[in-house]
């Protein structure tokens, strides 16, 4: 499985049609041009190549530009997004007792809709941050999803829409940070999002007041909420597994912290593979052992800094860094702050 073969779910197909209509063009010729088969009967199983998804997005941006309505397609796609074919997810969100509670949907979105984006919630005493992370898994890390501004534009449009729907139109969203430089249509951002925007940032982040996370919501409906979650769990169980060696390795690290400090040989043994075979598979999927290991270590580090009191020496040792200095350096490259600053910001 080479990296260009990577496919992702396309259960959002009806959302694309709706957004195209709103922008004033017909998406049918574009779907035909890229060989997208629209079949509502098998929508749950529909998948699309990452490269096709990118081409589709670019074609829709162009088509929207030529209609004269002046809409930027990713904004509209994000804003008009609903969980049409995942109704229990919509119910789950609408019956949440707090924004924190609703945020659980983010991990399911990653699993059911967009394996190429993982939205993580971080917080400290004052602010909460929804961060878009682009996991290098399943051969998707050629950067094609992460480097286009369109992905972050549409995800933030959706996040803003649901956040405002739950906590109110005048929600104190503080800032949207984007990694990409200002595009030619940068002037549309503030007008559309109604929020201050910054470009050329370390990460794609939506910042809001921390106190919003636990503010009680009017729509709280605990028993429906509980039932909706059980339905989502049943749906997740029917999902096909992530295929590929990178996904396997990723999962192995997620369930077992102790493996983070282990060598390539040891891990290969754990996966019943020769070390060379493991390396070959990973490189075919467009990634490497070192890359996945570092990513897993840093995720574990963020988690530990948030939830445990472990000192930094023992943490860096447990995660398999050679010393505290190299841990600090790697962590800083990844998050933009040092581990102690990060921990301090959570106090």
């Amino acid at each position: 499985m080479g990296m260009n073969d990577a496919t992702v779910p396309f259960i959002t197909l009806p959302n694309w049609i709706k957004a195209a209509g709103y922008c004033g063009f017909n998406i049918n010729p574009i779907f035909s041009r890229y060989g997208v088969e629209a079949d509502l009967l098998h929508l749950e199983d529909a998948r699309i190549h990452v490269s096709t998804l990118n081409q589709l997005m670019a074609a829709c941006v162009d088509a929207a530009n030529t209609t004269g309505r002046g809409h930027h397609f990713p904004f509209i796609l994000g804003e008009t997004f609903t969980f049409e074919y995942l109704p229990e997810m919509e119910t789950y969100i609408n019956t949440s007792s707090s924004l924190r509670d609703a945020a659980k949907v983010l991990t399911w979105v990653h699993e059911l809709i967009s394996p190429f984006v993982d939205i993580q919630l971080e917080e400290d005493a004052r602010s909460a941050r929804m961060v878009l992370v682009y996991p290098p898994i399943g051969g998707l890390n050629d950067g094609s999803m992460a480097n286009l501004p369109y992905t972050s534009e549409s995800f933030f449009a959706t996040l803003l829409k649901f956040t405002r729907m739950l906590v109110g139109q005048n929600t104190a969203i503080r800032l949207l940070r984007f990694r990409h430089p200002p595009p030619s249509y940068a002037h549309l951002y503030e007008e559309f999002f109604q929020v201050p925007v910054a470009f050329n940032q370390e990460r794609d982040v939506m910042e809001l007041d921390q106190e919003l996370l636990d503010r009680p919501l009017l729509g709280a409906y605990p028993d429906l909420h509980q039932q909706a979650e059980l339905l989502v769990q049943q749906r997740l169980a029917r999902q096909p597994l992530w295929h590929g060696t990178a996904a396997q390795l990723h999962r192995l690290y997620q369930t077992n912290d102790a493996l983070l400090a282990q060598t390539l040989e040891h891990i290969a043994d754990r996966l019943n593979m020769h070390p060379r075979t493991l390396q070959r598979h990973l490189s075919q999927e467009g990634t490497s052992f070192g890359e996945l290991q570092t990513e897993a270590r840093l995720r574990a580090a963020v988690d530990a800094l948030q939830h445990r009191r472990e000192n930094l020496e023992s943490l860096s040792e447990r995660l398999g860094f050679s010393d505290r200095r190299s841990f600090t350096r790697a962590f800083k490259r990844w998050t933009g702050v040092s581990p102690s600053q990060y921990r301090h910001s959570l106090r």
């Binding site: 509980q226 979650e229 059980l230 769990q233 997740l236 169980a237 597994l241 992530w242 996904a247 396997q248 999962r251 192995l252 997620q254 369930t255």
Partner: peptide, 15 residues
């Protein structure tokens, strides 16, 4: 409790 059990088993499903 049942939601908890589901999540704990699902942690390992992909392996």
């Amino acid at each position: 409790g049942e939601k908890f059990f589901i999540e704990c088993v699902r942690d390992y499903r992909d392996q």
